[in-house]
Simulated scan of single mutants.
Amino acid sequence: MPRHDAAALRSAAAPSAAALAVVAVVATVAAGAPGLVGTLAGGALVAAFFGVDHLVAARTAGLEPRLAMTMVMALYPLKLGLLALVLLGAADAPGLSAPAFAAAVVLGSLAWLAGHVRLVARRRTLVVEPDGLSWR
């Protein structure tokens, strides 16, 4: 994985991990082991859902931009379908605290997105391609 892709992944995953650590402590105190299991399952779901985007973006970085965008956009409905199946399966999972799972998913997602937005706001990315670098 290129250095800038690894930095993007770290900048998004670090705030999410911090938020999930807080949720894990609160959920474990409130619900015991099922709270911890729910938090870990929710955190794994967030990492998988958003981490796949980084993997696909890194793999398609050298491709023609329209093809790369098509691949990334085609991945989104697939991820949503798999997410729905996981959420339906986790609803009645034994040994899993549903409130801890939900809190981990919501807070982990918000923290991941906040970290990613912070990175994008601070990174200087060319929006216009200089002459000679166009794909046309």
Results as ranks from 00 to 15, higher is better:
A21F: 13
L78A: 14
E64R: 10
A27P: 02
V52H: 03
A21R: 06
G62S: 02
M73T: 14
V25M: 03
V26P: 06
V46L: 03
L75V: 03
L45E: 09
Y76N: 10
L83A: 15
A14G: 04
M71P: 00
L55A: 14
A19T: 11
V72D: 04
V26I: 15
L80G: 03
T39V: 04
V52N: 00
T28W: 15
Y76E: 10
T60K: 01
L36M: 04
G38W: 10
A17I: 11
T28F: 12
V29T: 13
L63N: 05
V72Y: 00
A47C: 08
L20P: 06
A58Q: 02
T39D: 02
V25Q: 03
V37T: 11
P77L: 07
A30H: 01
L80D: 04
T39E: 03
H54C: 07
L67C: 01
V56S: 00
S16Y: 00
G43T: 01
A48S: 12
R59K: 13
A74I: 06
L45C: 09
L40C: 10
A44Y: 06
V46K: 07
A44M: 15
R66V: 10
L45I: 11
P77F: 09
V52L: 14
L82A: 15
G81I: 11
A47S: 15
G81T: 11
R59H: 12
